[in-house]
Design a protein around this nucleic acid. Sequence first.
DNA 1: TCATTTAGTGTACGCGCGTTCACTAGTTAT
DNA 2: ATAACTAGTGAACGCGCGTACACTAAATGA
Lengths: 247, 247
Amino acid sequence: MTSVNRRTQNSRSHTPSRSGGPRSAATSERRSQSERRQQTRQALLDAALDQLSDGISFDQLSLRRVARAAGVVPAAFYRHFDSMDELALVLVEESVRTLRAMLREARESGVSADRMISSSVEILVSHVRAHRRHFAFIADARSSSNVVLRHTIRNEIRLFASELATDLARFPVLREWTTADLQMLAGLFVDTMIAAIDAMLESPASALPVEGAEGAAQNEIAAQTEKRLRLIALGVPHWRSGTQPRA
Amino acid sequence: MTSVNRRTQNSRSHTPSRSGGPRSAATSERRSQSERRQQTRQALLDAALDQLSDGISFDQLSLRRVARAAGVVPAAFYRHFDSMDELALVLVEESVRTLRAMLREARESGVSADRMISSSVEILVSHVRAHRRHFAFIADARSSSNVVLRHTIRNEIRLFASELATDLARFPVLREWTTADLQMLAGLFVDTMIAAIDAMLESPASALPVEGAEGAAQNEIAAQTEKRLRLIALGVPHWRSGTQPRA
DNA sequence: TCATTTAGTGTACGCGCGTTCACTAGTTAT
DNA sequence: ATAACTAGTGAACGCGCGTACACTAAATGA
């Protein structure tokens, strides 16, 4: 738990170095400059993500807080990012990668029809547990007051829904659906899953994937979500697209 | 557009009084003390709501900003509220009242079955248009970093869903549904509508209910939402509750 | 070996914030 | 008429913030 910067050995023993200080990357002894640079950069990103999944919203997250948590002086931040906004964009990339990995896994777990829903929910839950910080960031960024960040993340979610729509198009029942209706269905699925993520993130986190009380709450959410998706799926075979809703 | 406080006539002509100043309550000439008190209080609440529906989140909304917009000095705020948090709770009450009024209207527009969905969406859209500030506040408060505010509003939404569930119980198709399943259905409806509200609020507002371009965007959202709800409703007759999803 | 580059330091600045306090002028009550 | 009350004022405070800048010491490269 020492600081990212070690200063010879322990010279000038004040401010943020020793004793229960901020968590950061490993304390190596002799590293190349670029290694140490990357190390600090990662410590900043990690510090931001940690705070984010600790209930601090991105809006509250100041440059100074991040620097402090990374064990670094505020000015040092600028060696790595122009601003918090730029750091946010890096976090977007990271988090979106996690999101895509989840979609890929769901796609490749190639089970069919009804079993697909429960397996998708399982994958969702396990990913949220394994990458809580990324999902917390995404959920938070969606309603951030930072315009660029908010729109970027919403666009990514829209893209995600689009990809899901083309996946759905492969199902026999959905073969003859219009593109617009497929987008509608995918959007409904995605929004339902986002609601599930929000609900899961509300329980005050758990550092380790325990089986305790909060795990039970998450299982409840998973069950509820599965029901919702299953109900939606039940309507699918009876859908008729036309502008006239009733035949 | 003068200030809420008039000071005799125009004595000491500096700070925030004249000339394009902040919008606030009417500028009466001679009012009783309690009238003037209420006037300022309302000006503070209005100022907060205006900022909120102008894209400023509650987290960004400072006591000083509200006071400034209400045409009042920061310290005067304390004559009416202990803190921004207390003001927020008043706004919750106001906004929840709007929400309940919407539910009541939907309930009393007593149409049946399929027509009900489109009429509900119409009511939703018209209410969001008519009370944009309240819905903007609710949407924002849902993800506020203020713990009390966030939980209060989420609880109100849960209550709203519960009321909807008991309303739904009256429909013949839903007569034999378990309470849990009704809650699930109501939750799905409510979350879908919340998604719709979020989407509607994203277009940068319109002071007057115009028929222009942004109205078109809102109609698109309404259409999409109606489709979603209709699809869900299609699944309802085929729902089977049991733990075993497949018969 | 020695000059250069560079990651991180420490100090300082101006700003908006919440909060406090003594005050003033217009009601209200006696 | 006068005393008590009260809504709003204006100045002051300490704090955390983003940013700037001169600095240092270690790594790099000629």
